[in-house]
Amino acid sequence: MTVVNDAPKSKTPADRPEYDHAGRTAIANRLLKGSSARSFDPIVELDWDAPLEEGKYFLPPKVISLYGTKLWDEMSEEQRIELSRQEMANVLSVGIWFENLLNRALLIRLMREDPAAATSHYELTEMGDECRHMTMFGKVIERSGARPYMMRPWERWAMLALPAVMRGTFMWVITLVGEELFDALQREMRNDPQLQPIVARLMQIHVTEESRHIGFARDGIMRRKPIRSRWETVTAANLHGLGGPAFRRLFTNPQMYKRAGIANPREAARIARKNPNFHEVMIRSFEPLSAFLRQADLMGPIGERLWRRAGFLP
């Protein structure tokens, strides 16, 4: 009697799918053309001499962390606008530090890549975009009359160490965590009539240019999907969850409330973290990225638990 073995055979190296270099190159070339056709210099695109408009917010009220709470109801309109100024300065400060991180990770990556490749050329172009964004964020903080929020020493050390481990799928997942949370809300806020014009213009520019960066990162993840190892998948699918508690703390920085004149800033932070309205804002910010991570099979159980506990998932 002949015994037939129906068990699947393990793939040899020759059987494994190869990375789609041609497709990745085509995407890079398309994004390079888009960058050439539609990039912005914030020094000339924003009217730095225009006065701030009285009575307008620096973030729309509905996305401010204390909106809808008893503490918010007790604040005057001037106090609410001041809190919006401080929350905007905090968010832009976080954006500066993250884009600094991304640029350093891309520089390390470029040391291993072909300098004549289209992907390398787009990564250099993206770094140029990010440098202009950091300039724009810093100048808007200054123009608003606020001050930037600085990282604590341990946060700086963490940011210095992180680029060394940002490789493969994990590199692009971390990129999306830092970019998509802001992008989703900016798309919602940029046309709000209550917004200061200079902030609205910043968001319009940032959304336009970040859409290319997000597209490049998402494409990098999907092209690696057929070839990534189980270890690469498991680590990338779960370590991104650390972003949940980190961003929850950053978005409710007690220093914002202190600078806005709130008597008990730590209590204000606790109120914000329990605020159902702000919880909904966090969910909306994470929703597009959450859907993509599930599509890419990169929402691991630990990662999902961390994002949910931090309030970014319902």
Rank of each mutant, 00 (worst) to 15 (best):
T235F: 13
R230V: 09
R248E: 09
A246C: 02
E232I: 00
L250N: 15
T235P: 01
N264I: 14
V234D: 05
A263S: 07
R228M: 04
K258Q: 10
A236F: 08
F247N: 13
W231D: 13
A236L: 06
H240F: 15
P265D: 11
N253G: 11
Q255N: 04
S229M: 07
A237M: 06
G244I: 00
F247T: 11
L239V: 04
N264K: 06
N264W: 10
N253H: 12
G241N: 00
A236D: 08
L239T: 07
A260I: 05
S229N: 10
R259G: 12
A236H: 08
R248K: 06
N238G: 06
A237Q: 06
V234T: 10
V234K: 13
A246D: 02
N253K: 14
F251I: 02
R230E: 07
H240R: 14
G244Y: 06
A260L: 01
G243D: 13
N238M: 09
S229V: 15
V234Y: 13
G243L: 13
L250V: 15
A246W: 12
E232F: 07
P254Y: 02
T233V: 01
L239A: 09
R259Q: 12
G261C: 14
I262F: 00
A246S: 05
K258E: 10
G261P: 15
R248D: 09
E232S: 01
P245L: 05
R230N: 10
A246G: 04
V234P: 00
R249G: 08
G241E: 02
H240W: 15
T252W: 00
E232N: 01
R228W: 08
N238R: 04
A246P: 00
A260G: 12
A263M: 08
R248I: 00
L242C: 10
L239P: 07
R249I: 11
Y257I: 06
L242W: 07
T235I: 11
L242Q: 12
A263T: 05
G241H: 00
P265E: 10
R230F: 03
H240K: 12
